[in-house]
Amino acid sequence: MATASIAAPAPAAGLDFDYYFKLFLKETRYEFLNRLRLRAYSLSVIGFPVMFYLIFGIANRHSEGFHFARYLLASYSCFGMIGAALFGLGAGIAFERAQGWLELKQASPMPRLAYLAAKTVSCMAFALIIVAVLVALAITVGGVHMTLRELIQLIAITLAGALPFASMGLLLALVLPASAAPGIINLIYLPMSFCSGLWMPIQALPHFLQRIAPLLPTYHYAQLALGIFGYAQPGSTLLHWDALIGFTCIMLGTAWLLFTRMNADA
C-alpha cells in the first residue's frame, strides 16, 4: 500500500516578514513566561529594586532636606533594568549553553537575532514592571510629584539601557561557567551600581570612587535618568549617550569574536 508524504509548505516570499514577526512574538512570549515562572529570576529581579527603594527611598525620603524618594526612583529604575538584562542574558544564556540548549537553538531554522531579541525584549518587559511598581510607591507613599512628561522620559531612558547591558550580559554568558555565572554577575553588577551613584548621590561617595565613576557605563546610564529630575552631574548629555553606544559596540564586537572562535574550534 503506497503512502503519501506531506511536506509542510514553506512561507511564501511575500510573507517572510509576517512569518518571522510571528516567530519573534512567539519566542518572546515563551521567553517572558519562562522567566516569569522562574521564581529565582522574577522575584529577585523585581523584588530587589522594590525592597531597596522601600528601605532607602521611602524610609529616608526627606533625610537632611534631600528628596531620596525622587532621586532613587530614577536610579533604581536603572538598577532594575541592569539586573534584568545581566541576569536574563548573562546567567540565562550561560545556563542554556551548559545544557546544550544553545546548540539546539543554533541548529533550528530560527534566526539567531530572534533568539537574542526575544530575551532582550523580555528583560525590557520586566523593567517596565519594575518602573510601574516604583512609580506607584513613589507617588502614593514617597511624596513624589511627577509630570506625564517626566514619566514618559523615565520609561524611555530605562528601556534604552536594555541594549548596552544585554550586550554585556551576552558577553558574560560566553565566558562564564553556568554554575558560577549568577555569583560573578553579582560581583560585577552590585559594585558597578554602587560606584555609579545608583544607591546614593555620587557626592556622598569617597573622592577616589567619584573619579572612577565616569569610566563605568552604569554611571552614564544613571546620569541620563537622574537628569530627568535635575539630579545629574554637570556635563554633556550627548557624552553619556556616546559612552553607552561605544560600550554597546565593544560588548557586541567582543561577543561576536568569541562566538565565532567557539564555533570554529567546535
Rank of each mutant, 00 (worst) to 15 (best):
A132E: 11
I58M: 04
I157F: 09
S122Q: 01
A2Y: 13
A114D: 01
F87N: 07
A138F: 03
G100D: 06
T237L: 12
L116F: 12
P111T: 09
Y30R: 08
L86W: 00
A222N: 11
T28W: 07
G90E: 08
A98L: 10
A132S: 15
F165L: 06
E150T: 11
S193K: 03
F194A: 09
A40R: 10
N263Y: 10
C249A: 15
E64C: 08
S122F: 02
F56H: 00
T218F: 08
T140N: 13
T120C: 08
F165S: 05
F87S: 03
L72A: 08
D16R: 10
Y219C: 03
A266Q: 14
Q223R: 09
A222S: 14
P109G: 05
L23Q: 02
L137A: 04
L43K: 06
L54M: 15
M110C: 13
T218W: 03
H62P: 02
G83N: 03
A127F: 07
P191N: 02
M262T: 15
P206M: 08
I157Y: 09
G90H: 00
E103C: 10
L89R: 05
Y221M: 13
N34P: 07
I184V: 02
H207R: 15
T3P: 11
I139R: 15
F95G: 04
I228E: 01
V45H: 04
M124L: 15
P177M: 00
I130M: 03
L72C: 07
Q153P: 06
A125R: 08
L43H: 09
E64W: 11
L226M: 09
A232L: 01
A125G: 11
M146Q: 12
K105P: 08
A136H: 09
W241K: 09
P191D: 06
R35L: 14
E150V: 12
L258M: 10
A94I: 05
A98N: 12
V133C: 04
M146L: 15
A225M: 14
S5K: 13
F95T: 14
H145F: 10
L187N: 00
H145K: 14
L154G: 08
M192E: 10
Y189I: 06
L209I: 01
F66C: 01
N60I: 02
A125S: 12
F17V: 14
I152Y: 12
A213E: 00
I245L: 14
V131T: 08
I202G: 06
A255K: 01
Y30A: 11
M124S: 15
K119T: 06
R112A: 14
L172E: 01
L239W: 10
A59E: 10
A91E: 04
L190D: 04
P201N: 04
L215V: 13
S179K: 14
Q210C: 05
P234I: 00
N60M: 12
L176T: 03
A222W: 02
A107F: 14
T260P: 09
A156G: 09
L224D: 01
I250P: 02
Y219Q: 02
F208Y: 15
F17P: 05
F247L: 09
Y53Q: 05
P182E: 03
P191W: 07
